[in-house]
Amino acid sequence: MPVITYTSQEQIEVYRFSIPVAIGVPLIALVAQAFLPRWLPFLTIFNLPFLVVIFFAVARRNPISGLLTGGAIGALQDALGGQYIGMYGIAQTVVGYGASSLGVKLDVENAGARFLVTLFFYVTHEVVYFTVARGLVGMTLEWSWMRELGSALANAILAVFLFALLDRFKRRT
């Protein structure tokens, strides 16, 4: 007798998004990331493009789509930030691939899972970014566990609310 677990492929739904949403949401995230810290400097603690990458990757549950989305959003983030293109690109590619691969195996639709996934992948993102920045580009960045964990926590909390909002744009395949 076959046992259907909670995480079996039959129970995990794959979503898709309309083209305006697929383009508009990352664009809004990029603009907001560049624009909001002008008034509220502490908002640089949030990484909205990263959250969008996680959301799309987990919802689509397709590793290739996830890594391509991550790579594209990361490259745009690099282009706007003025740094070498590829620094955020590589980090977001890894995150997109990892999140979508995890989404295939686990149900990450509830708030608790989203919180943990975001927390985990934020740290992963920062580790990859720092590795690239220090190892490949030769930048002198200071790693601070307190700051990174604080940022991870803040992003994870924001992710819970943001993902609930973005759920409205999901379409079942």
Binding site: A75, I85, G86, I90, T93, V94, Y97, V132, G138
Partner: peptide
């Protein structure tokens, strides 16, 4: 394989820029 290819392309691009 695709992940490795995309990462490799980005690392290559980064190296060229640096």
């Amino acid at each position: 394989t695709i992940l490795a290819a995309v990462l490799f392309a980005q690392v290559l691009g980064l190296a060229v820029q640096v």
